[in-house]
Design a binder for these strands. Structure first.
Lengths: 109, 109
DNA sequence: ATATATTATCGTAATATTGCAATGAAACAA
DNA sequence: TTGTTTCATTGCAATATTACGATAATATAT
């Protein structure tokens, strides 16, 4: 298979897993951390910052863009990528709600 | 490939991506939410709660266990799974730090 | 001992992910 | 126009993930 049976889960569960999935690769974590650190960024910077080939970085950027977490403005021959503030906040709310659940007083462990 | 080049990233980046990866499937999200909701849990409950086959659930539980997020106590013929509080807290700290970064004032987007 | 119940493991098929070389597309410079 | 720079897309090989039937392993009950 290799295919998650999303139809048997809630929208919220699927949303959480989609966001988590995009954070599930260290290169995408590194890209986001770099975009947080500096104010603007072009793809070339990231290719130097991170050690992967240009097509690979481009692909990771595409996945982040598809989820709406970053946006890219074309500026001449280069593209300026940055965090999409609104969408990042929405994502954060959903993830925090999931991570911040009260830990129950288990009676068996 | 299908293999992440972890050696070019920091321990923190790799850790974040490993935790995120395990949340990157709705079944594991559902399992964790269910473990949060009730105090104790056995695998059989989860097979009924979630619609997947027993070997599939068992496999997902194994991944959560490998990362230390849940632990399982054998109780007769069944196993009682529950959240590992300490490890969940450690994970939460790492993930919150990543999610809660200050959004920069970009000058281009 | 035999049967039952519960969970784990193995094996396998289908699909997804990762990475990069090669190439394409678009804007700019000379 | 002809190059140059920058990023995207395509195509492919290697590996990972997901799901489940079959089966094993373990404990309990009769």
């Amino acid at each position: 298979m290799g295919l998650a049976k999303t139809e048997m889960f809630t929208d919220e569960q699927n949303k959480i897993s989609l966001f988590a999935k995009v954070f599930g690769h260290p290169a995408r974590v590194a890209i986001l951390q770099h975009l947080f650190k500096i104010d603007a960024c072009i793809c070339g910077d990231l290719v130097n910052e991170i050690g992967l080939a240009q097509p690979t970085i481009s692909q990771h950027l595409k996945e982040l863009k598809n989820l709406g977490l970053i946006k890219g403005n074309v500026e001449g021959t280069s593209v300026c990528y940055c965090i999409d503030k609104d969408n990042w906040s929405s994502m954060k709310d959903i993830m925090l709600k999931f991570l911040d659940q009260d830990i129950p007083n288990t009676n068996c462990c």
